[in-house]
Design a protein around this nucleic acid. Structure first.
Length: 479
RNA sequence: GGCGGCAUAGCCAAGUGGUAAGGCAGCGGUCUGCAAAACCGUUAUACACCAGUUCGAAUCUGGUUGCCGCCUCCA
């Protein structure tokens, strides 16, 4: 049974969908004013895996992830670049897709943009005004937080306490300093739409209330995003949606933890924002996923080169294992897709059922790799039927698990060939040269000319080529 | 000031009542001409500290210390 930590109630709860067999999930997507960074990658990958897992255990999932394509940052940035907000957001939406495709992130079922849902947004604001939760003031419309008795239930804050805080608030038109804007009156040069309150544009929080309820109904199963969105964004979404529609908005709130870089928070002042596209120049996309998923999604994770090198080594280890099974069974990949899920899959699901514990799931994978490598080490003979069935089953489960984590999507031989090709190209090394040197070395070895053989091996090593002398012949890899 | 989180071996990291998964690194082996890969063994007298609850706690309660996040745009 799947248990999920619910930010709203601050505990793990058994997951029960509103409609049996179906799950509606909304995740706050990026504001498209710049390239996506490693923090976006974590959030998107975490929810990608959650959605894949829900699908894998049989739910029919409707996954909505929005693009915020109108907001102050977009307007400012577009102004700096001298292009329209539309051009800017289109550019970064394209980049977002490039990054996500590279990261093997699946598309959401629906990926709405705020500017395509202005009518729905206006509709929610009108409802809030008519129900006494919002008021117009000088061309803007504000949400009156004091009218919503549950305000603060998600973040655990209370209005009185927050007011005691050292917070500066200047807008005289607000009835309460924590009132937030639903609709902003137009300013010259900004994108604007007609509304009952004159021309203007939506505030930040309202789009998510409008789009999520539009696609998933007033009451749906799961809403997610980064931890930083808990307050004020998600708190305000609850106030808006429940204020407007008068029923519970979301059952389960899921929030992922942050990525830090070498123990530091990513921040503009430190200038340490790592962009996805830059990371992928250095590391395999599946290694990045493996790294991100090797910590629990709610914990902070520290991005370092050391950790990435380890993740890449781990990924290679699993691929090498798959490759070995294929050779061992004397078979060309890919494997039998019709295999029934086996014990490995069951253990993995047990881990995932416990609040999507991918770290434990990955541990189980490595443990299995070791056990079956041992099996293959031990059996000198041809595998008997029992061994064969076990290996087949494990291989199929591993690929199935990879399908949830978004790794092991390549055929092992292809994975290693690609790695070779990448490194050789980067170093400007010719495959033919490598092959020739290896042939020379093989000849030297046959003649027991170990000095020459070792000299060639060292030469190759200095070119970042690693040699493995196997029973069936010498193979090589790149460092 | 308010709210919340975290503290497990050299490093990373699971584990939330029954006596410590997994990965990386290290050391010792098996294998190998030597290596590499793989495997085996080994590496936490007890999980920040103190005091409790309990037959029993890393795991619950209270306190202490340290680190971090949110409260302003932020995944």
């Amino acid at each position: 049974m799947l248990k999920i930590y619910n930010t709203l109630n601050k505990r793990k709860e058994a997951f029960e969908p509103i409609k049996p067999g179906k799950v509606g999930i909304y995740v706050c997507g990026p504001t498209v004013y710049d390239a996506s960074h490693i923090g976006h990658a974590r959030s998107v990958v975490v929810f990608d895996v959650i959605v894949r897992y829900l699908g894998a255990i049989g739910y029919e999932v409707t996954y909505v992830r929005n693009f915020t394509d109108v907001d102050d940052k977009i307007i400012n940035r577009a102004g700096e670049l001298g292009i329209s907000t539309r051009e800017l957001s289109e550019r970064y939406i394209d980049e977002f897709y490039e990054d996500m495709d590279a990261l093997k992130v699946g598309r959401a079922t629906i990926e709405p943009r705020a500017t395509d849902h202005i009518d729905e947004i206006i509709g929610v604001v009108e409802r809030l005004i008519s129900r006494g939760h919002a008021y117009e003031a000088g061309g803007d419309v504000f949400y009156a937080v004091e009218t919503f008795k549950d305000y603060g239930k998600l973040s655990g804050r209370r209005l009185e306490e927050m007011q005691a805080g050292a917070r500066v608030e200047v807008d005289e038109r607000k009835r309460n300093p924590f009132d937030f804007v639903l609709w902003k009156g137009a300013k010259p040069g900004e994108p604007m739409w007609d509304s009952p309150w004159g021309k203007g544009r939506p505030g930040w929080h309202i789009e998510c209330s409008a789009m999520s309820t539009h696609f998933l109904g007033y009451h749906f199963d799961i809403h997610g995003g980064g931890k930083d969105l808990i307050f004020p964004h998600h708190e305000n979404e609850i106030a808006q949606s429940e204020g407007a529609f008068g029923e519970q908005f979301v059952n389960v709130w899921i929030h992922n933890g942050f990525v830090r870089i070498n123990q530091e928070k990513m921040s503009k002042s430190l200038g340490n924002f790592l962009m996805i596209k830059d990371i992928l120049k250095e590391y395999h996309p599946e290694a990045l996923r493996l790294f991100l998923l090797s910590n629990h999604y709610r914990s902070p994770v520290d991005f370092t080169d050391k950790a990435m090198v380890e993740a890449e080594a781990g990924l290679e280890k699993i691929y090498a294992f798959l490759h070995r099974i294929d050779r061992y069974l004397g078979r060309c990949e890919p494997g039998d897709e019709k295999q029934e899920p086996g014990t490995l899959w069951a253990s993995f699901c047990q881990a995932m059922d416990d609040d999507f514990n991918t770290a434990r799931g990955i541990g189980i994978v490595f443990e299995t790799v070791r056990q079956l490598n041992r099996l293959m080490d031990d059996i000198g003979r041809k595998p008997d039927q029992h061994d064969q069935a076990g290996l087949e089953s494990t291989r199929a489960d591993l690929v199935r698990i990879g399908g949830v984590l978004g790794i092991l999507t390549e055929a092992p031989s292809q994975f290693f060939e690609q790695r070779k090709a990448d490194v050789l190209q980067r170093k400007g090394i010719d495959t033919a040269l490598v092959e020739r040197l290896i042939a020379e070395r093989t000849r030297a070895r046959h003649e027991k000319d170990w000095a020459t053989a070792d000299r060639i091996r060292n030469e190759l090593f200095s070119m970042d080529i690693l040699i493995e002398d196997r029973a069936e012949g010498t193979i090589w890899k790149v460092k």
